[in-house]
Simulated scan of single mutants.
Amino acid sequence: MTDLITAGKLCKEEREKRGLSRKDLHNITKIPIDIIKRLEEDENYLRKDPYAYFLMKVLIDYYQLDIELERNPETDKKVENVKKVEDTEERQGFFIRLFKTVFVFLIGFIFVLISTSGKNKKENGLTDFFQLISNPQPEDNWIEIKDSSSKDGIQKISLKAKDYVWITAYIDGKEKVIKMKKGQKVKLFFRHKIKFETIGNAKNLVILFDDKKVDFEKKVVHNLFVDGDGVFYNGYNLAKEES
């Protein structure tokens, strides 16, 4: 059994033996360059990051090294805890969406009853109803979404829409549904983390984190995480500059 630190050194030796740069390896494995560097040299990262084990296996499989990795109980526990949190949030999200569906149906039913009382009332009710459910927002200014009860430790990311985008997110565990029009800009404030459960029309969204731009090639993106260290998708930090 080989620990992650030893495996990282062996992978670095193998890369150099083959005359590959970290950028070459990134082009082959799609692992970000800064993560490759950490896998090869950063002992603290290898001990603590729950995704280090799985990314190291990608390198070992590519090099076809005869290495059996030693599991780290501490990081395995972190991965298990993350999965439990995600499962809990997924179940909560289902019941919240079900409640919202029933609520919208009832509002629509009430509106139909009110609208039968007369033409003028119908026209006024129609205007008020759409103002209520659409919550129109100005396109030229930044829209700020934050918990007014939060005080210290606030962090933020910025969203810009190149065209229509819809988002379901959990900001510190609280669900937010965000609909953005072309040119609209939104700032999200958080303490601990944001989970973007779904980003629809993700190709039209740009995320700004710590002056770094993150955009997407996919039309739909699921399970994107943001915390104080970056924007994580499938274990990769998309907000790290390649070096």
Rank of each mutant, 00 (worst) to 15 (best):
T116V: 06
I194D: 02
E175L: 14
L98W: 04
F189N: 05
S150Y: 13
K193W: 12
I96E: 09
I133H: 03
F105Y: 11
F94H: 07
K193A: 12
K119G: 04
N135Y: 13
L98E: 11
V104H: 11
V186H: 02
F99M: 09
S148D: 14
Q131E: 14
D152W: 07
T168N: 14
D172P: 04
N120A: 11
Q155S: 14
F189E: 06
F130V: 04
G125H: 02
F105M: 10
K185F: 00
I133D: 02
G108C: 05
G153I: 06
E139F: 08
E139W: 03
F105H: 05
Q137T: 09
E123D: 12
T168P: 00
D128E: 13
H192A: 13
S158K: 14
K179G: 10
D128V: 08
F109Q: 03
Q92Y: 12
G183A: 04
V177S: 15
S117Q: 12
S115D: 06
K121T: 13
D163I: 00
W142F: 12
G108D: 02
K121D: 07
F130S: 04
I154H: 03
I157T: 07
D140G: 04
I171H: 04
V165L: 00
I154A: 07
Q155H: 14
T101K: 12
L188D: 00
Y170F: 13
F105E: 08
W142Y: 13
Q137K: 15
I96S: 06
I114D: 01
K162E: 12
H192G: 13
K100N: 15
I96Y: 06
Q184A: 05
T101E: 13
K182T: 08
N124C: 05
A161F: 06
D128F: 12
Q155T: 13
F190L: 02
R91C: 03
G93W: 03
N124I: 10
K100E: 13
K146W: 08
K195I: 15
I114W: 08
F99C: 07
G153R: 08
S149M: 05
P138C: 03
V186Q: 00
D147V: 04
K156G: 06
K193R: 15
K195T: 09
